[in-house]
Design a protein around this nucleic acid. Structure first.
Length: 482
DNA sequence: GCATGATCATGC
DNA sequence: GCATGATCATGC
């Protein structure tokens, strides 16, 4: 049953083409798209309604006789409709902790699926129901036709995931471990687990990261990826080393060197007046143009964020590390497994570039060490989750505020209560606010009248907050590495 | 001195 | 205009 009714690739592409410009709802023959409910039904609808194929969870390609896998995925316009971003990661196939370990990449289920994928894209629009999203593009992704550099990185990613299982570290796998191909959690709640080597681990699936999908869409369809500078200038380097190793190597000559010494190694001085002068040094040491540090091809596709960290003379970090503000209403409603916060920490990979203070007033530092880091799953689903749960609990009951000396003191989780993370205000000023969920009250514990809390209560808003990693935790992370 | 609230600077 | 990374400032 379920044999492909298509005898050629052209035939298949004709069908895809016929749907361009159409609403998803047109193909919803079984009323699967209920407004406001359920995710991930769109692929099913297209498979059934457009291609007349019964959905299954086989690890073989959907159109097995053609070796082609069908994927339907969304994008959004960002930056005032100038650029698209992938809405989500592209889930390829489930990770089989028991059988995948015996398979080389080109024999794997992943390979059989991404060797040839028919990608159908729809525009995800915020104010629309799923049924009203429009299919706008389609294209064939063929693994063997992507750049040699990308191929090597993806194969290495696959090998790394497999190796982690072989090393009995299945429970510590994280999407942030790898660069373009990741192992993302699958399942809507913490009950979605499986026991591997006696340890309960989350079900996971292989997926092309959202950042990589954004690249794919921009470069293949919307033609606005642009010419990004690659960190790896010579493909052959990847034969012997991973991207990470090459990054470390790039910094090696500068370890323990002061900024002034680095200046003289390059025969020109970096202007240390701009706030991000340390980033300029990082660019220099990575051998990329100063302005390109945040848009290195490989870093963008892998969602690698560079953070410069300064240690004081006694080896401490002065400031905690901030992350984007969270939306009070969204956080109060979502589950941990599907939360924006979990996703952000799971997906992000950081490149910490650590400097020791030599003379702060002269802006003189020396390079201490460089390390890639992504948050361990046990910390993410442990301590960070606790902070998140406390925050959610407050947003579903009451924020307790005291007004004192022109400050609003609140009861969000502080760094005293948790070794890893805390919640702090993070906006342009204390009047920079987001709306509160309807369930959340503001309870005034004391008020010296120096600030207008009544306005917050009337408008049902509160100062924007974000999660921060405790400076002591970041220091621990740094010191765990050589 | 540390914890936490407040705000600056920058870039899109 | 706003998000984001970074840092200042105050009071216990």
């Amino acid at each position: 049953m379920n044999e492909s009714i298509y005898q050629s690739r052209e035939e298949l592409l004709e069908i895809a083409k016929s749907a361009i410009g159409e609403r998803i709802g047109k193909y919803d023959t079984r009323n699967r798209l209920i407004p406001g409910k359920g995710k991930g039904k769109i692929g099913l609808v297209i498979e059934e309604g457009l291609f007349h194929r019964k959905a299954d969870s086989s690890q073989k390609p959907d159109f097995d006789n053609l070796g082609i896998e069908l994927k339907v995925t969304g994008y959004q316009w960002k930056n005032n409709n100038k650029k698209v971003s992938a809405k989500e990661r592209l889930v390829i196939t489930m990770l089989d902790y028991f059988n995948d370990v015996n398979k080389e990449f080109r024999n794997s289920n992943v390979y059989h699926k991404i060797a040839k994928m028919l990608l159908m894209l729809y525009e995800h629009e915020l104010d629309k129901n799923e049924a009203d999203f429009i299919l706008t593009n389609y294209f064939m992704y063929e693994f063997e036709n992507i750049s040699e550099l990308d191929k090597r990185i993806i194969i290495r990613d696959y090998d790394n995931i497999i190796q982690k299982i072989l090393d009995n570290q299945a429970h510590e796998i994280s999407e942030g471990d790898t660069l373009y191909l990741g192992a993302c959690t699958k399942g809507e709640n913490s009950g979605s687990t499986v026991v591997v080597n006696g340890i309960e681990v989350m079900r996971r699936a292989f997926a092309l990261k959202q950042s990589y999908m954004t690249y794919l869409m921009r470069s293949s369809i919307f033609k606005n990826w642009g010419n990004k500078e690659s960190f790896i200038k010579d493909l052959n380097l990847l034969k012997k080393n991973t991207l990470e190793e090459l990054v470390y190597k790039s910094f090696e000559p500068f370890i323990s060197k002061s900024l002034t010494e680095i200046d003289s190694m390059f025969n020109t001085q970096v202007d240390r007046n701009p706030k991000q002068y340390l980033k300029s040094y990082v660019s220099r040491m990575l051998n990329v143009k100063d302005k390109n540090l945040e848009s290195i091809d490989e870093f963008l596709k892998a969602n690698i964020q560079v953070k410069t960290i300064r240690l004081s003379r006694i080896g401490e970090i002065k400031e905690s590390m901030s992350f984007p503000n969270f939306d009070f209403i969204q956080l109060s409603e979502e589950s941990w497994e599907e939360s924006v916060t979990r996703d952000m920490f799971e997906v992000s990979k950081f490149l910490f570039v650590v400097f020791d203070e030599v003379n702060d007033s002269k802006k003189e530092y020396k390079l201490r060490k460089v390390l890639f880091w992504n948050m361990p799953t046990s910390i993410l689903d442990g301590e960070v989750r606790e902070v998140w749960e406390s925050t959610k609990q407050i947003l579903n009951s009451e924020i307790r505020v005291s007004v004192k000396n022109k400050r609003f003191l609140n009861n969000f989780p502080s760094s005293k209560n948790n070794p890893v993370a805390h919640v702090r205000p993070h906006g342009v000023n204390s009047l920079d606010v987001y709306e509160l969920p309807s369930t959340c009250k503001i309870r005034v514990m004391s008020n010296d009248g120096t600030k207008d809390i009544e306005d917050f209560i009337n408008r049902h808003v509160f100062t924007k907050q974000s999660f921060w990693l405790n400076n002591k935790y970041v220091l621990r992370v740094i010191n765990n590495f050589k």
